[in-house]
Design a protein around this nucleic acid. Structure first.
Length: 265
DNA sequence: AACTTTCTCAACCGCTAGTGA
DNA sequence: ATCACTAGCGGTTGAGAAAGT
């Protein structure tokens, strides 16, 4: 037995032909998206619904932006990846006209290598020779390991007022009790977002400031493009008289990131 | 020109979450 | 609670293109 939606006989695989594309476009234009399972039959396509959906989303959608990624898009991808990890669909949600597949490919073929060449670990976004010593940390990670489901939360405060809030889970199904605990402590935190802010040893990379400019995130600490190590401009701000910094539009003040400004689709 | 290697990216596969019966 | 099913996500593959020899 076993269900395998794309294993049907007489189902085309591989590259799409112009005729198939035209059929799919025409069908979706007149009927709209959805019901992918039944779409191939009604549209007269010898493809599985899954394949049709992918073709439409990744290639045929009229709002897609084709062509090279801009420097600005590079920057957004790198920063979002450092926040979200390989959550390509979330990253794509912040880049209009780009698909998760496209961003994933671009990451693997271009950005990954660029970071590696600069000695930056593309997974952790930290210098490759840096140890795991973390002094200031706000890390929320929801590991996708199988089984278990244990969730723990730990908050510490050291002498210089920096908070460490660690929430770890071995299961994506976030425990409700732990969620309540977090929400009591951090009512502004939107746990629908699976966010893992990067640890950056900012004192080393950007001198006295706590923000990390794009140039520094690429390992170009002393470049002319660095905007975070000189005059307090760039990504470091004072908010209400207390120290705070902005990371991709997220404000961290008093140890709490304000995620409200990062709305996802 | 011919062949080999490397790169790119569209498409596929397997898995999970969500939903309704 | 369980099952059947769909939609969607992220990792991987492989065909074609480009670059190198």
């Amino acid at each position: 037995m076993g269900r395998s939606p794309c294993e049907k006989a007489h189902t085309n695989k591989g590259a799409w032909t112009k005729e198939e594309d035209d059929r799919l476009i025409a069908y979706i234009r007149s009927h709209g998206e959805g019901c992918w399972r039944s779409l191939p039959k009604t549209a007269g396509l010898l493809r599985c619904g899954k394949s049709c959906r992918l073709r439409w989303i990744n290639y045929l959608r009229p709002d897609l932006k084709r062509g090279n990624f801009t420097q600005e898009e590079d920057e957004i991808i790198i920063k979002l990846h450092s926040l979200l990890g390989n959550k390509w669909s979330l990253i794509a949600g912040r880049l209009p006209g780009r698909t998760d597949n496209e961003i994933k490919n671009y990451w693997n073929t271009h950005i990954r290598r660029k970071l590696l060449n600069r000695g930056i670990d593309p997974t952790t976004h930290r210098p490759m020779n840096e140890t795991n010593s973390a002094q200031e940390m706000i890390r929320i990670s929801f590991g996708s390991g199988g089984g278990g489901g244990a969730v723990s939360m730990k908050e510490e405060q050291d002498e210089n007022e920096d908070h460490k809030i660690m929430i770890t889970s071995s299961n994506d199904k976030f425990d409700e009790k732990a969620t309540r605990m977090v929400m009591e402590r951090c009512p502004d935190l939107n746990l629908d977002l699976r966010i893992s802010p990067p640890h950056q040893n900012q004192k080393e990379t950007c001198g006295r400031n706590r923000g990390l400019c794009f140039a520094c995130s690429l390992g170009l600490q002393n470049s002319k493009d660095c905007t975070c190590n000189s005059n307090g401009t760039g990504s470091s701000n004072k908010i209400n008289g207390s120290s705070a910094y902005v990371f991709l539009g997220l404000t961290k003040a008093g140890g709490v990131l304000d995620y409200r400004s990062l709305e996802m689709k």
